[in-house]
Design a protein around this nucleic acid. Sequence first.
DNA 1: TTCAATACATACCAACTAGTCTGTTTAATT
DNA 2: AATTAAACAGACTAGTTGGTATGTATTGAA
Lengths: 207, 207
Amino acid sequence: MGRDGKPTYDKILAESKALLFENGFSGTSIDQILQRTGITKGAFFYHFKTKSALAKALIEEYAKEDILHMNEALKKTKYLEGDALERLLQFIQEFVDMMSGLSEPYSCLYATYTYEPSQFDEETLRHISETILTWRKTMEQLIRDVLQDYDTKIEIDIQSLADHTVVIFEGAFVVSKALKGRDLTADHLKHLKNYFQLLFVRKTTED
Amino acid sequence: MGRDGKPTYDKILAESKALLFENGFSGTSIDQILQRTGITKGAFFYHFKTKSALAKALIEEYAKEDILHMNEALKKTKYLEGDALERLLQFIQEFVDMMSGLSEPYSCLYATYTYEPSQFDEETLRHISETILTWRKTMEQLIRDVLQDYDTKIEIDIQSLADHTVVIFEGAFVVSKALKGRDLTADHLKHLKNYFQLLFVRKTTED
DNA sequence: TTCAATACATACCAACTAGTCTGTTTAATT
DNA sequence: AATTAAACAGACTAGTTGGTATGTATTGAA
């Protein structure tokens, strides 16, 4: 009964996201979203009770896809479980490949929200931190696997090293966007890969 | 003649900056600034013709201090010019020390502006990119100095390696702020330092 | 074919927005 | 003491904001 609202809903999400990357969240008015989508106010507030509800839906979809990509890269590199370092390196390489050849700088919703935190409710912000913690958990495991067979040339804190991946993602996004050139994320992920490659040395079996 | 406006001017800049880190630029209203400073509208618009003028003044002051810090670190490590690698490492260490023991996550105006770019005029945004390019130039020189006496264990692009420092700064800011814990910048700068340390090997004098 | 729920359209509103205008206070100068 | 420019105070405005109220169109089910 009633017509299908899915296309409208999806259109709002897609165009809103694009607008957020140009104007930020407070800087994006609902009227602007209506203009870009060709949708009316009635339709918008039918799908989203408030502007905050849109923000929440946006971050949920975004984080879901993010974790999806992460898990896909995990899956793709599962065949390398034998050599944990090779697996870690290839895991990063998956994202190098993914981000290579992007013409425009990539923008991230986490940073968008993080730099105007008062605009969002606790739950929405927590969703971001929890997604980053999911990344931390995954990277920690990958690193721990490496440490079974490898030592580090320099003493490191595992959690901090685990976070370093997201740090480089987010930093590369900001710098690429600020410089308004091509996206530099792939380049900087390569440095992360280099770091991992240089940091670990295979344990000497003392026999 | 007339009273001294400097304290008022400075107060507006200081409180505005703090508000921007909470609400973003569009999310910060002039009325909010007036509340926080206890200043009136007349005073505000006496010092700043428009809200955009405030944005420009803010970024100019911020970038100036940023480059100042950079140059101070350069100066402090000048005594190590003899060993360029040691100098590079100590240069990073200066910022590790600077960012250590921060209780609150540090926020950066570059990222604030970069994630709502449509709110600022070309000149203001260019100021950011040019400041980042100043960092690039400085880091490039430090790295080139190292390459006089050192090879890299892995082939690298100098410009990209130069940018990596700002990338890690910005990324650490975003992640620290998103996780709402303590500031993690010092930790991640240490990883950068590790990377430099591992990447370079002294050239073998073939005699 | 009627029904009813979904999906949308549009006029409207109170609150807030950046910015203006006119006037007043302050304090060094003459 | 009078002057003058800088520094500020506060009422006002035109436009925009998120959100609402009420009505209409669409569509499958009965």
